[in-house]
């Protein structure tokens, strides 16, 4: 019998990295939930792998935002590996990365921290202004996470996801490549700035 692997899913917002912080935390609830989910995922793991996307149009030499979010949430525990999938990677590329991730995760009792979020065009004041196609797109991935039917993530359309500034599409599809199903122990979502954030705790069976 193999142990269940723990997966934490958290948003890739730069509000979660300390370098830009103001004096008043605009997202205390999200921050607390993200910290708790990540702590839960790694509490008995031998290794930690971070799965995130590269930045959309980087004009800097820093690590991708998602990696820096993960490091901030992991605190003293540095990740053993960071899989920063290309922001526009094809679903097949994501699936292949996921399959490799699954094999290694099972063999080496690994926690997975998936850093990605939904569409950033959910309101008129959202980073990408309003695009109502966001709602069905976000509903699809959020439903797949909440139900544990992760194969539902595989059908997220990359072009539409790019239009809608969905930063989590590729890492979500890596997760789906690693596990078709999971048990969702907790999911929470909110879009305070017109970007859909979710925090989830998933258990994935070690066998495929």
């Amino acid at each position: 019998m193999s142990a269940a692997l723990r997966v934490a899913l958290v948003p890739s917002t730069l509000l979660l990295v300390p370098e830009y912080a103001g004096r008043v935390d605009p997202i205390p609830d999200l921050r607390a939930r993200a910290h708790a989910a990540v702590a839960w995922s790694v509490e008995s793991a031998a290794r930690v792998v971070v799965v995130t996307a590269t930045d959309r149009d980087p004009r800097h030499s820093k690590a991708p935002a998602g990696e820096r979010v993960a490091r901030a949430l992991l605190g003293d525990r540095a990740p053993d590996e960071v899989v920063a999938v290309e922001w526009a990677a094809s679903p097949q590329r994501c699936r292949d990365l996921g399959a490799r991730l699954h094999a290694e995760a099972v063999a080496r009792h690994t926690a997975v921290v998936v850093v990605g979020d939904g569409c950033a065009r959910r309101t008129e004041k959202a980073p990408g202004h309003l695009d109502e196609r966001c709602f069905s797109y976000d509903e699809a991935w959020l439903r797949a996470v909440a139900s544990g039917a992760l194969d539902g993530l595989r059908t997220l359309e990359p072009g539409l996801g790019a239009d809608l500034l969905c930063h989590g599409r590729a890492p979500f599809q890596v997760l789906a490549g690693a596990a078709e199903t999971a048990v969702c122990e907790e999911v929470w979502s909110s879009d305070p700035f017109g970007v859909l954030y979710a925090v989830a705790r998933l258990r994935v069976d070690g066998e495929r």
């Binding site: 917002t13 730069l14 509000l15 830009y20 912080a21 103001g22 004096r23 008043v24 605009p26 950033a120 959202a126 980073p127 305070p192 700035f193 017109g194 970007v195």
Partner: peptide, 12 residues
């Protein structure tokens, strides 16, 4: 010498 009171713009 002091962080902004609120910092969200461009970060969400």
């Amino acid at each position: 010498d002091l962080p902004p009171r609120r910092a969200v713009r461009g970060l969400a």
